[in-house]
């Protein structure tokens, strides 16, 4: 059987694509580079939207990347069920593209935060979290200036009521995010966005605070193999 193929998107200003590709390979999948200016998903089985500062965060984080040629292919594919994970700037892009509800705004304390953060897994029903346990606490790096999740009251109630809050900050809310939300999913559970960085927590060698990030990649691989 050939390895699952996970696309990793690079925009101008993306920073974490190499770490993401490495994490994909460590999990045993093939990492397929996807270029923002191509109308081509290269037939991948899943897509990772990595963090960074695409288009320099001009206008709003993710606001310009969201209209890139690659995204015009990715948006309908994701709506049709293609598994997509967006971390940090990738999460911001997913919200700007309306693949996930709400928005990420300036951190409450204005500081750019770079630290290891405890996160509680609130849902294992998504394509990217099946390998975790409900309520499990994991530690992942966070590094962002605009990670405060906001949504209107009706959207928040729907997210909570439908179990679509996938991750919550534990041991203190770093950015003022509503309901301590660190990550969410869509109705179908194939699209997940979160501010923390699983791709930076897959190897002891790099000084990562944990290897908890591996669970994202083993989850999606199992899903693809069993699909």
């Amino acid at each position: 059987m050939s390895a699952a193929r996970v696309g990793v998107v690079t925009f101008p200003g993306t920073l974490d694509d190499q770490d993401a590709a490495r994490a994909v390979r460590l999990a045993g999948a093939e990492a397929v580079p996807l270029w923002h200016a191509d109308h081509d998903l290269k037939g991948v089985d899943a897509v990772f939207l990595p963090g960074g500062f695409s288009y320099g965060d001009y206008l709003r984080c993710g606001a310009i990347s969201r209209f890139s040629p690659l995204m015009t292919e990715l948006i309908p594919a994701a709506q049709a069920g293609l598994p997509v994970l967006g971390t940090c700037n990738g999460f911001q892009i997913l919200c700007e593209a309306h693949l996930l509800p709400g928005a990420l705004t300036r951190n409450e304390g204005l500081h750019y935060i770079c630290r290891d953060q405890r996160i509680r897994v609130e849902s294992t029903r998504t394509a990217w979290t099946a390998d975790f346990a409900d309520g499990q606490e994991i530690v992942l790096p966070i590094k962002h200036g605009e990670g405060r999740y906001v949504a209107d009251a009706a959207t928040l109630a729907a997210l909570e009521g439908e179990g679509r809050v996938v991750f919550r900050y534990a041991g203190g809310n770093p950015n003022g995010s509503l309901n301590d939300i660190a990550g969410i999913t869509n109705e179908a559970g194939n699209i997940v966005g979160l501010m923390p960085h699983p791709e930076h927590a897959v190897e002891d060698l790099t000084g990562a605070p944990s290897v908890d990030g591996r669970g994202f990649f083993t989850s999606i691989l199992k899903r693809l193999v069993n699909a």
Partner: peptide, 14 residues
């Protein structure tokens, strides 16, 4: 403009 109900930490700092 940010909607009135959205926190504006930059405005607060100013």
């Amino acid at each position: 403009m940010l909607k009135p109900e959205i926190l504006d930490p930059q405005g607060q700092a100013i």
